[in-house]
């Protein structure tokens, strides 16, 4: 045990952290820290800082932390992105996740935030699409899978509607038309609308049910992702429904939303019966929690 004045705690902590999170390992981390002047002790003088044990050198002991750092965080990402890992294979995923963690190291107190930027990272680092007609490729599939699985995580643990009274779908039926037109729907906080280039939801569900799905063929897929009884649900919707729901979620009145829908899409022929069936279904599914008249 030493008697000389110890290194200030913040210096030791910055040094140790930089060493154990160094992507090339502890030895490289020590080297880089001694180069930048963070700590004068290089690997040859490491025992001046970290005691060796009976069975391990100082470097080997620091490697316990370095290995654990990476393994622990990658395990969490594997849990967050099971379908993605299945599609890419675990070995390739470990490489990809290591790159991600270098660019987006954990900064939050919660591991729930660890995978937040994974899809963005994939978009920034993807190989170019080389298909001649620009049709969605393998990287697009992986990116969409990552977007979907992140969405699932956020919906799963975010605010939901389980504690709220269900919206009475009869209210739609009994509302006089002039009031119905000016009403606004209050969207459930757990409702997400998203467009994917592949039916990634089917792939993700198959993996979660321990199947071994084939990678799907590209097909534009619009999903309403929501939550009921604390379990994430997803419903495919068509282009018109997606349009309409998007405008309603953004705060348009029902009348405005329908008007914009017809302006923007002359093909959109929706009968009044169809419309009221949609609204009933959406209310029953819990997409909306209130009607502001």
């Amino acid at each position: 045990m030493a008697n000389r004045v110890p290194q200030p705690l913040d210096v030791i902590q910055r040094w140790m952290q930089s060493v154990i999170v160094h992507p090339a390992g502890v030895a490289a981390g020590i080297k880089s820290a001694s180069k930048t002047g963070e700590m004068e002790q290089g690997a040859d003088r490491l025992e001046e800082l970290i005691c060796r044990s009976r069975a391990q050198t100082s470097i080997e002991r620091l490697e316990v932390y370095s290995n654990a750092y990476k393994a622990r965080l990658i395990d969490v990402l594997i849990g967050d992105y099971p379908a993605f890992v299945h599609a890419l294979g675990e070995e390739a995923f470990v490489g990809l996740a290591s790159g991600y963690l270098e660019v987006h190291p954990p900064v939050s107190y919660t591991l729930g935030e660890l995978g937040r930027s994974f899809a963005d990272y994939l978009i920034q680092t993807r190989p170019p699409n080389e298909s001649e007609d620009g049709s969605p490729d393998w990287a697009d599939f992986l990116i969409d899978l990552a977007r979907l699985e992140r969405c699932y995580s956020e919906v799963f643990d975010g605010p939901g509607i389980e504690e709220l009274p269900p919206l009475d779908s009869d209210r739609f039926r009994h509302l006089p038309p002039e009031q119905w037109i000016t009403s606004r729907l209050v969207a459930a906080p757990c409702l997400r609308l998203a467009v994917y280039r592949f039916p990634v939801h089917e792939y993700a569900s198959a993996v979660r049910h321990q199947q071994d799905p084939e990678s799907p063929i590209a097909e534009v897929t619009r999903l309403a992702i929501h939550r009921r009884e604390y379990v994430v649900r997803r419903t495919t919707i068509d282009a018109i429904q997606f349009d309409l729901l998007t405008r309603l979620v953004e705060g348009a009145s029902i009348g405005q939303a329908l008007e914009q829908l017809i302006e923007g899409n002359s093909q959109a022929v929706v009968t009044a019966d169809e419309l009221s069936a949609w609204f009933r279904d959406w209310a029953a599914a819990g997409f909306f929690i209130g009607l502001a008249t």
């Binding site: 393994a71 622990r72 969490v76 967050d80 699932y152 799963f156 379990v231 994430v232 649900r233 997803r234």
Partner: peptide, 18 residues
């Protein structure tokens, strides 16, 4: 092997999807 030996393993929450 150290592949499955993580000190103080993380307990994280993962989504349940239908």
């Amino acid at each position: 092997s150290i592949s499955s030996t993580v000190p103080h393993p993380a307990t994280a929450i993962f989504a349940e999807v239908e």
